[in-house]
Amino acid sequence: MAPAAATPLPRLSRIRSAFKTMADRLGPRMGVGLLAAVIVTVLFGVLAEEVREGETQHLDDALRMTVYGVASPRATTVLHAITQLGSPLLLLPMTIVFALVFLHGRRIRAAILLTATMLGVTLLNWILKSWFQRPRPLPFFGLTMPRPTASPAAIRWPPSASTVRWPPW
């Protein structure tokens, strides 16, 4: 009898077979995760298209002003501290320290995983910013943003320049 691999499979069966092999290799939990990743990628594509067409601007502006409307001095202080948790000035040293700790504990895979994750998101961040070239909004609370896209934001988004008063309370 001829081996099963020799018989050509129809296209759908091949796709199903590939998914089954992938699910076998990754396990059911990661299979579900990958399916979620595919769905999120599609939704991201839809969002990107809407952003490029300017369809999200109205909702973005409304959300911005809603959040600005409930601002308070204490919340501003707390959120200013919280936002530093996502700063590269904190994340870069933390990544290096944790990678070194993992290497010291002979957890090579964990060190590689952490480094790959951080390098990948940094690269993706840079690629997406370069690709979209979306002007940043005008920051509240007298914050200044060093990026050159900050100034055109005030021009392209007139409500930010005309309606924002500081301090909000």
Partner: peptide
């Protein structure tokens, strides 16, 4: 916090989460 401080739009943040 990025939305509150006005340094990003909500759609930027959602896009960042997705990526």
């Amino acid at each position: 916090s990025r939305l509150y401080l006005g340094v990003h739009y909500a759609s930027d943040i959602v896009g960042g989460y997705a990526t």
